[in-house]
Simulated assay, not measured.
Amino acid sequence: MTSEITIRPIKAAETYPLRHEVLWPQESIEYVKLNQDEQGHHYGAFRNGKLVSVISLFMDGGVARFRKFATRPDCQGQGIGSQLLRQVLDDARQKGAQRIWCDARAVNENFYRAFGLEPEGNRFYRGTIPYIRMAKDL
């Protein structure tokens, strides 16, 4: 099914429902809020006017970090998250970042490798979920 995907900046609060539903449904909604959210750049991918994927970008000098990347389960595997991540990589570069990184769930490592991100360091856990830091030069 082809449908129009629109990507645009959104407010931090608009990311919370998807962050919660996709990433940490067993936790309270407060768990998905970040202290740095107000300093971040938040993006949403909309399909037919509905928010289906979110990501947040944080700049620290020449280094960018993206966090809380979440796509509605029924919209995964359709290229929507890929479009969103490409946009964020471009925006980070335009904002002056020379490097970008994330703490990726280990299960998603191959997805991030497709964008040129490579694992750095050892796996670590948040609760029972294994993560790996992934990064690339822009």
Score class of each variant (00 low, 15 high):
Arg8Phe: 04
Val54Ser: 05
Ala114Glu: 04
Val54Gln: 10
Ala114Ser: 15
Glu109Lys: 15
Ala70Trp: 05
Leu34Arg: 11
Gln39Tyr: 14
Phe58Thr: 04
Gly79Ala: 08
Leu34Ala: 14
Ala97Met: 10
Glu30Met: 09
Pro17Asn: 04
Ala97Phe: 01
Ile5Arg: 00
Gly116Pro: 05
Leu138Val: 03
Gln78Ser: 09
Arg99Ser: 13
Asp60His: 15
Asp90Gln: 13
Phe111Pro: 05
Arg126Lys: 15
Arg72Leu: 12
Phe46Gly: 01
Gly77Val: 05
Asp91Ala: 10
Ile55Asp: 03
Val88Gln: 06
Pro9Lys: 12
Arg123Leu: 13
Glu30Pro: 02
Asp103Thr: 03
Arg19Val: 04
Ala104Thr: 02
Arg133Gln: 14
Glu109Thr: 15
Gly40Cys: 14
Arg126Pro: 00
Asn48Cys: 02
His42Ile: 03
Gly77Phe: 00
Leu34Tyr: 12
Gly121Phe: 01
Cys102Ile: 06
Leu34Ile: 00
Gln76Lys: 06
Asn48Arg: 01
Ser56Leu: 06
Arg8Leu: 12
His20Asn: 12
Phe111His: 10
Ala114Tyr: 04
Gln39Ala: 14
His41Lys: 15
Val63Tyr: 05
Tyr31Asp: 08
Tyr31Thr: 11
Ala97Arg: 04
Ile80Ala: 07
Arg67Tyr: 02
Leu18Val: 08
Gly62Tyr: 01
Ala12Arg: 06
Asn108Arg: 09
Glu27Val: 03
Gln26Val: 11
Val107Glu: 13
Asp60Leu: 09
Arg47Glu: 02
Arg65His: 08
Ala135Lys: 14
Leu51Phe: 03
Ile100Asp: 05
Val54Cys: 12
Tyr16Arg: 03
Thr128Val: 14
Gly77Ile: 01
Asn110Cys: 02
Leu138Arg: 00
Phe66Val: 11
Gln36Gly: 01
Leu85Thr: 02
Gly44Lys: 08
Ala45Thr: 02
Lys136Met: 13
Leu85Ala: 07
Pro17Ile: 07
Glu120Gly: 01
Glu118Met: 13
Ala45Tyr: 02
Arg65Leu: 02
Asp37Cys: 06
Leu23Asn: 09
Asp103Ser: 14
Phe111Ile: 11
Asn35His: 10
Leu84Trp: 04
Asp60Ser: 15
Gly44Leu: 12
Ser3Phe: 00
Arg86Ile: 04
Thr6Cys: 08
Thr128Phe: 02
Tyr43Asn: 10
Phe115Lys: 08
Arg123Trp: 08
Gly77Gln: 09
His41Ser: 06
Met1Asn: 09
Gly81Phe: 01
Ile7His: 06
Cys102Pro: 07
Phe69Pro: 07
Leu89Thr: 02
Glu27Trp: 06
Val107Trp: 00
Asn110Asp: 15
Gly61Gln: 11
Val88Trp: 10
Ala45Gln: 04
Gly44Pro: 05
Arg93His: 14
Lys68Glu: 13
Glu109Asn: 03
Gly96Lys: 08
Lys33Leu: 03
Gln94Val: 12
Glu4Cys: 00
Lys33Pro: 03
Glu30Phe: 07
Glu38Pro: 00
Gly121Gln: 07
Gly44Tyr: 05
Gln26Phe: 12
Ala97Tyr: 04
Lys33Ala: 08
Arg123Ser: 06
Pro9Asp: 09
Gly40Gln: 03
Phe124Arg: 06
Gln78His: 13
Ala64Glu: 03
Gln98Ile: 11
Lys50Ile: 00
Val52Thr: 08
Tyr31Phe: 15
Ala135Thr: 06
Thr128Gly: 02
Phe66Arg: 08
Asp91Glu: 15
Arg65Ala: 09
Ala104Gln: 03
Cys102Glu: 05
Pro130Val: 09
Gln78Arg: 14
Thr6Arg: 13
